[in-house]
Design a protein around this nucleic acid. Structure first.
Length: 766
DNA sequence: CTCGAGCACACC
DNA sequence: GTGTGCTCGAGT
């Protein structure tokens, strides 16, 4: 017997290994194996078992070991990953690797805790203490301590002998008795104590008790949505629903009730949320409705062990509900019935490294496979999804009203071009904004201020020669972070002490321009001294605890003003927030070369605005902008998605951009700019010859907007195609299934000096 | 004549 | 992805 093995390397090829007779009974398709690959031992994935090998007998090597006891991938997952590999131009092995968290691959079983327990019944231990053979005093203390503690928790994974016997954490014993590990260890050797590891049950909610909530009576629109969803769940059929509900319209309640229904059918649900929206608030909502044991959480703050534990909890069927970011779309459910993608339009659902998949497309594929229902929820659907809905691929269901008839907050546009401060520059805060803030504070209300940029000053410039201080590795302007007193490159995270003189002309006085969250915080603290101000951006929210703390401070009213980046734009639901101030929303509009900039701006405005007016006090929004007449700002301020979509689709159609075409981006990166340029030119020339008969258009090659990152030059090429088939025909015909390797091989002489990546349906063009 | 860099190739 | 062996030019 021979095993077909693929490896997690950018080489889309399967390799045949012989299966030693002692492994034939164990090895199954979908298991991981260890095999000699070239000179080294590699983990590979068994994707097939055959009786004949197409490779000469003498070249075939045996499999060294089978890693798994049961397949890590079932038939469906194998099919899904094979499709992924083909669609996103990566190898099958790479696709398979992306499906399993690395903690699971390393066979981590979660966090462990050392436990100490008596090795024999109490009486015997007592006898032992009193016996003639005197125990050393510290050892006697340990035994007494255990005997007195009387903690006899029935531990799930402790051996039966320990049941009913005092069991304490090893660390606790040492701490309480203020002793070294030696006495405990000696007792263990004397077979009086047993020391064992137990897996800590990672419960992301342990520290908080959450009141239970009952389902709300759905509004007629929610009821309608639920009816359609339940119908498909009943029929056990695939259906994709675009749940287009304005902010505060109760999309989550629809998810919750759909899940409740699904659980009664004994099936599982996956809820994908953008990472920044995976807040304690979001999690609480699910926990307050369902039993915590049934919920598995996969978020980025989890370290490998706990993540692996959550994964196993899903796989063994304990967890019925999976809440997580992008990669949770691969959660190892056994009876999947529903996938929800909340904030469907969010760019974070696209993976930015290989395999460059979009969770939305994976979800659709998976739902189809499992006859499950897919719900795409958003207040601002991506134009791709909106277009698919109008083409009938998705069923669009609207939730056009906020719950309890609350109106959407009025948005007032403040034209910054007319605001000149005494220093003849544009102020951070317009007079109107300042006034509105003090009005709301006087009323005891809360305020959220939004700004797209973190740090203090976004630009350091020499007033004499005009030079901008840039990161030497990325050619991107450094941002000054005052708290760190460092300049920071937001692309490579490199920090430097702030320069004292201009590196170009030596001028000793540098100007700090541009506004980040730190500067706004400083300004607001100065203006509103007697109020509590909190900031929320990735500089501060490095731990989940910090995040939680700020949110609860906001919840209890300890914080009056919250200043933040995108982090404040999603999921926050505080009824006492009556004012949202958008300090600046224009940055998204200026990002060059991105055809989605208008869409981004519209989404941003809509979602930030949606943070207010969620309580009986209502709310309002002030929006500062230099582009008051741009349609994304105008329609954003009137909450008019349909009008925005109509106009934006018109532009997209004129320029033949998605959703009217299919994009593929080819990016070449390397330290040597000449090599990068020749490579991309060769690729471009070659493709140009092939496209004459296809409805395909080439854009570029051109330097990428971020022309240099971490010392690597970047050039890219966009392929715009009428349909996917032509795109695939172009790449696969010309370069075969082994696309990436073939590209490097065919077009470039030096494959190690440069990196070529193919990004199907790119979300970022930077 | 030796050694390292740069590159093509193979990996079962 | 990565080790190997080949070729080529600079250096002993």
């Amino acid at each position: 017997m021979y095993a077909e093995i693929v490896f997690p390397i950018p080489l889309n090829k399967k390799f045949h290994y012989s299966v030693p007779s002692e492994l034939t009974s164990r090895l199954q398709v979908g298991m991981r194996v260890l095999a000699q690959f070239g000179t080294r031992l590699q983990t590979g994935y068994c994707i097939g078992l055959v009786t004949h090998s197409p490779i000469a007998e003498e070249k075939v090597k045996p499999i060294e070991a089978v890693i798994d006891n049961e397949p890590m991938f079932d038939e469906k997952m194998l099919t899904l990953t094979r499709w992924m590999a083909e669609y996103y131009f990566c190898s099958w092995g790479q696709a398979l690797e992306a499906v399993v968290p690395s903690g699971v691959r390393k066979q981590m079983t979660g966090q462990h805790e050392l436990m100490v327990t008596l090795a024999m019944p109490r009486e015997k231990i007592q006898a032992e203490i009193k016996s003639a053979t005197k125990l050393p005093p510290q050892q006697a203390r340990v035994l007494k301590f255990l005997l007195d503690s009387d903690i006899s928790v029935p531990l799930r994974d402790s051996p039966d002998v320990h049941r009913g016997l005092p069991t304490l954490s090893y660390q606790e014993v040492l701490n309480r008795l203020k002793i070294s590990p030696a006495p405990v260890d000696a007792l263990r050797r004397k077979k009086l104590l047993k020391v064992f590891r137990r897996t800590l049950d990672y419960d992301p909610f342990l520290d908080t008790s959450i009141p239970h909530t009952s389902p709300f009576t759905p509004t007629p629109e929610q009821a309608h949505a639920l009816e359609i969803i339940k119908q498909s769940l009943d029929r056990n059929e695939f259906k994709a629903v675009l749940l287009h509900g304005i902010t505060g319209s109760g999309k989550t309640e629809v998810y919750l009730q759909a899940i409740e229904y699904l659980l009664s059918q004994g099936r599982q649900a996956i809820i994908l949320v953008p990472e920044i929206a995976l807040t304690p608030q979001t999690i609480f909502r699910f926990r307050s409705r369902f039993d915590s044991n049934q919920i598995a959480i996969l978020h980025s703050y989890l370290s490998e062990g706990p993540r692996a534990q959550q994964w196993h909890k899903i796989r063994d069927g304990t967890a019925k509900i999976v809440i997580g970011a992008r990669s949770a779309v691969f959660a190892p459910t056994t009876k999947l019935g529903l996938i929800v993608i909340d904030e469907e339009h969010e760019p974070s659902f696209k993976q930015e490294n290989v395999p460059m998949y979009h969770a939305r497309d994976i979800a659709q594929m998976r739902a189809r496979q499992e006859n499950a229902v897919l719900i795409l929820g958003s207040a601002t659907p991506s134009l791709e999804s909106f277009y698919k809905a109008s083409a009938g691929e998705y069923t669009r269901i609207e939730l056009p009203y906020r719950i309890e008839q609350r109106p959407l907050p009025p948005v007032e546009i403040i034209d910054l071009t007319h605001e000149i401060s005494p220093k003849n520059s544009h102020p951070v805060l317009s007079k109107k904004m300042e006034l509105a803030i003090s009005e709301e504070l006087a009323q005891g209300n809360q305020i959220i201020l939004f700004l797209n940029r973190r740090g203090f000053a976004t630009l350091i410039i020499c007033p004499r020669c005009g030079a901008i201080i840039r990161c030497p590795r990325c050619q991107v302007a450094f941002t000054y972070h005052k708290e760190l007193n460092q300049v920071l490159c937001h692309y490579c995270n490199e920090t430097h002490p702030p320069p004292t003189v201009c590196p170009e002309c030596g001028h000793p006085q540098l100007k700090y321009r541009g506004t980040g969250t730190e500067k706004v915080e400083e300004l607001i603290k100065r203006l509103f001294k007697e109020y509590q101000i909190a900031r929320m951006d990735s500089d501060i929210m490095t731990t989940y605890r910090a995040y939680k703390k700020t949110l609860s401070a906001l919840d209890t009213g300890k914080v009056n003003i919250l200043i933040g980046t995108q982090m404040v734009a999603k999921g926050l639901d505080f009824p006492n927030v009556t004012l949202v101030g958008i300090i600046s929303s224009d940055t998204a509009l200026y990002l060059t070369g991105d055809f989605r900039s208008a869409e981004r701006t519209f989404q941003l405005v809509t979602h930030v605005a949606g943070r207010t007016g969620r309580g009986p006090k209502g709310g309002r929004v002030l929006l500062q902008t230099f582009k008051p007449n741009h349609y994304s700002i105008r329609y954003g301020s009137t909450h008019d998605y349909l009008a925005f979509a109509r106009e934006e689709l018109k532009h997209r159609q004129e320029l033949n951009y998605p959703p009217f075409s299919q994009l593929l981006r080819i990016l070449v990166e390397g330290r040597d700019i000449e090599k990068v340029k020749t490579a991309i030119t060769k690729i471009s020339d070659r493709l140009t010859k092939q496209i004459t008969r296809l409805p395909v258009e080439l854009l570029g090659p051109a330097p990428a907007p971020l022309a240099k990152i971490k010392g690597k030059h970047r050039w890219h090429l966009l392929i715009k195609s009428k349909d996917i088939a032509s795109l695939q025909a172009l790449l696969y015909n010309e370069t075969t299934a082994d696309s990436l390797k073939q590209l490097t091989k065919e077009f470039v002489s030096s494959s190690r000096a440069i990196k070529i990546s193919l990004d199907m349906e790119p979300v970022s063009l930077l």
